[in-house]
Design a protein around this nucleic acid. Sequence first.
DNA 1: TTGTACGCGTTATCAT
DNA 2: ATGATAACGCGTACAA
Lengths: 339, 339
Amino acid sequence: MATLKDIAKEAGVSIMTVSNVINEKHSKVSSQTITLIQELVKKYNYVPNLSARSLSQKSSKLIAVFINTYEEGQNHFKDPYISELFGELEALIRQSGYYAIIRSVETAENVSTILQNWNVDGAIFISQQTEEAMNIILKHSKCPIVFIDSYNKTNSKVITIGVDDYKGGYIATKYLIANGHQKIAFAACYSENNAIVSQRYQGYRNALKESEIPYNEQNLINTFTRYEDGIHIGRELANHRYDVTAVFAAADLLALGIIEGAKLNGCLVPNDLSVIGFDNLDLCSFVTPKLTTVSQDVKKKADSAVKLLLDAMNQVEIPSQNITLDVQLEVRQSVQKIM
Amino acid sequence: MATLKDIAKEAGVSIMTVSNVINEKHSKVSSQTITLIQELVKKYNYVPNLSARSLSQKSSKLIAVFINTYEEGQNHFKDPYISELFGELEALIRQSGYYAIIRSVETAENVSTILQNWNVDGAIFISQQTEEAMNIILKHSKCPIVFIDSYNKTNSKVITIGVDDYKGGYIATKYLIANGHQKIAFAACYSENNAIVSQRYQGYRNALKESEIPYNEQNLINTFTRYEDGIHIGRELANHRYDVTAVFAAADLLALGIIEGAKLNGCLVPNDLSVIGFDNLDLCSFVTPKLTTVSQDVKKKADSAVKLLLDAMNQVEIPSQNITLDVQLEVRQSVQKIM
DNA sequence: TTGTACGCGTTATCAT
DNA sequence: ATGATAACGCGTACAA
């Protein structure tokens, strides 16, 4: 509750002197008054009012973290990948001396409103945005924004950070092929707009092509990627709805559901069906069989995102606006050699 | 970037007229000027500066969500329960017209600083606090604070929300007893300071007592509650380090680890050992065997927390400062009848 | 119905 | 080394 004015009055000095002590402009104040004021600050538990500071400065020390609003009662933070990423981001933002404001948003317009409302210094998107949405957001916003897991081909000035989805799809498929599989399904929420999935799909296609395995469009399984959706697909797989010996599921939860659904209908993984996932959630090693999957380094992703954002905020020259982190195959138990 | 002043100038009216339109005090403005100003607001994309508003009003429209800082690289948001709860809270805060500021904190002192810094209207703690910490926090803070999953015996004015931990421990143990088990271990991170665990433990003890089963203090397994810790305990269980036929683990992740650890050493759940968990994470039904566990309603918890906080902020009479939500047993596959 | 004066807590600028 | 003043954008209280 104490303000600069209160401290100044008590100390018998002007507000500015107190302000200078607070902001450690020690060259401007005598060491006597410094100690005096420091004592009073302690005594009255003075802390600066950041709204006032934000009003008189250009900076608010606020970083906004955005996530898409969920539909159909699907809390996005139930996704272990999202929440881990968020936890890391929060810690990094705090450690950098900033305050994190978290917000789920429906439309691109919402974003710029929040940004202006609070005079936010920078923002991070933790869920994939379409190129259209990104462009609208950037057009209306003044502060730097980092987009995690989004692709933007048309505007090279957009700051993005993601993983090598293409490679992920490629190495997963290659691994299945190396284990003798030829009939391989690709399961994901596939659409032209979903760049991540498209990239993984391209990797899958090219791996097939390289091994001269003819592509069968029946093997593209388009589905939502929740566990329950996986169960549905798994049952169909067990019932030979698809003619495959292996599935590359572009999300771990989906993969786990598939394994369970197949089992429910008497088809055992990996004996009767091989499955690979994507993300390497902790969960993958809790289940039976442990899931072979494409793994990414979430901590590094968060690190890069915050670093990139801070650089942009400080007008530092950013070497690359688009960072792609590596992925690798985490071999466990859900794939079996055949033939 | 546009301010009230800009709009006022362009419209040829005073700032206050614009302000009144913005704040929908339509009784004070002619309908002509209203429409005129509304057009200009749209044209210039005017949005109010909330820092300025916060400065001139008592309210900032900010709600802080606090969580303890993690140690040893343990990101708290990797805990599915915490992140689900947080996701629900964020949505509710937004829907109530507030902005959520998220912060991990180390010490109780940190809290009041943040609260003052931003003139926060209300706060929610999503991880358990000791009574000592709560009292320090409350002493230094002016705004209402809701503590989720904390117990405060000494100060009845503290607002808390939790589940019936005692009942949880009781019904879990009762269920095991009903299934013929007499030698039952209690596994958790037990300490006098951890009120949640203590309550569950009391429930466990009383259930035993009611059935006249002598308590064996060897059966209190004190451990951290991560999956890895569970594996360790599970192995010991399999090696007959404890003389039990069932385990009540006060956290799902721990329970799942125990199941896996036991299996690694050749002890199968539920055939050779029965296990019950606590929390009912989604994960419980992804594993084999599916985990029997004590379930709580996370959504309801978040609902109550926000509702209680808003009431306290609005000086509404709060019927009860301490809400305890019900729990129930979710019977699945990890417990087997014996004898 | 509309306008004026003032204060919220802070910092920058310029003076002393 | 220290202080006075203006400014940041907004809302309250009162006046016209």
